[in-house]
Design a protein around this nucleic acid. Sequence first.
RNA 1: GGUACCAUGGCGGAGUGGUGACGCUCUGGAUUGCAAAUCCAGCCACCCCGGUUCGAUUCCGGGUGGUACCUCCA
Length: 497
Amino acid sequence: MAETLKLSLYDTMTREKREFVPTDPKRVTMYCCGPTVYSYAHIGNARAAVAADVLFRVLRHIYGEDHVEYARNITDIDDKIIVAAKEQGIDISEITTKFAKIYNDDLAALGCLMPTYQPHATEHMDDMVAMIEKLIVDGYAYESEGHVFFDVTKYDDYGKLSGNTLDQLKQGARVGEAEYARKKNAADFVLWKPSKEDDPSWDAPFGAGRPGWHIECSAMIKKTLTSEKYGETIDIHCGGQDLKFPHHENEIAQSNCAHNAPLANYWVHNGFLQMDAEKMSKSLGNVKLIHELLETWDGEVLRFALLSGQYRGELDWTDSLLKQAKNTLDGWYRILEQEGLEFISGNEPEDISLEAPVLSNRANCFLNYLCDDLNTVNVISELSQLKQNLSNGYDNGFDGSSPRIIPFSLKRKWNLLRSFVGTANLLGLLQKDPEEWFRGKAQEGGLTDAEIDGLIADRAQARADKDWGRSDEIRDVFANENIILEDGADGTTWRRG
RNA sequence: GGUACCAUGGCGGAGUGGUGACGCUCUGGAUUGCAAAUCCAGCCACCCCGGUUCGAUUCCGGGUGGUACCUCCA
């Protein structure tokens, strides 16, 4: 455990950056609202998952891999799923199983670790029913025409997370007539509702039906992350900023009332991706699916692009951003290619030369940036500077008044490389072999690796004959395939642009 | 109507009460048969108006602009 590191997180509830202090450093808990699995996830969904993944990785680094428990749910019962199942004439489980797998595969391509737990809503009906029952018995929820609603007036702090008050919410309320008639207050939200005849249904003391959207998270948090021993409060709850209201507000209300304890000590919300100065959203139809993007870009490029903005801010999602991400990663992978993975992953070299004074303490500051509310941007900046030094082969800095250039000793180079790669790995980057990275995936209908090698051999002969016309002709063939040749001292290598 | 966040160079995006992060792009040079890669050099910014201060991009007030939430959404 790295005890000297102090992580600070911006807490939406208190609207300030606070030092993170877990309830128990031996068991740090975090929950992230996962997807409703009825179609492909988009890159905005990925941003939330990647932000949570970085947090997960940092927590694991600080407290130890075995001391962090991360739960991310799968919502596998929902109106949209039912609609999709009807349209396709299949059971909802076929749809949810398929898209849950795709979601996990897509995130894996983006370098996300699997959460410790991935609870499914349909596997926790008992827990939801039990919690709803308790809320009814304790007077926080009421039944009405087969529905169960949470009475928001029974929870004094309702609206605290999003900065709303009940009066303000009434003004903005857009509630259908039928629904309004069933409720005591417009802002009351549904915990349980009757299912239509053919729809999936579960038995409950208050009538057969299915749960509202919010109750599953409260019930699954209780089930997977809390216990009598540790109490009902988890350390961190995260998700997209749109979930602040109503989803998280409602989770807070129902969990507080059911357990008489806060749901989470820290609330972490990520900002939205922008598409042409407008938020990416399913209702606007301007979404980019992770699945589609992976056809063109390496998952690491997508991850890098997501990490190039601080997680709380808006981030413009453009081709230019992706191109920049790729170019930068190319530069980083060049270091691996240049130094060789054997050297980097080998033992610390013996070095008989005098150790040069170290002017840069760059290698030590990565984690401090990361611990400052997950400032991945500064980490990337520092890594880029370190990459520059590694590429040059020397430190630069000031010794008193005069600038100095100090070539690396082998030992120092090795240590800096380890720091460079280790930090990138902590961010979930530089996970590939450089050769694999540069050659990329063969495009459909493009040249095969064997054909490429053949043409390169032809060109080598032409160059030996000083037949520059033929040589350039072959280069043009490659250029049309978006393949770039590099004539080095040891022969010609190639990569996909 | 209510609430929240944001405003930095061609683009992305940090940070700071006083020497203009960093990346990408671009320009010039070195190198190369030509390239690529690499190296060197260079260009370019802190929304507006007040206030505090010796000094503000950074603090305070006002304005303007942008985005989001109050409805399924990461």
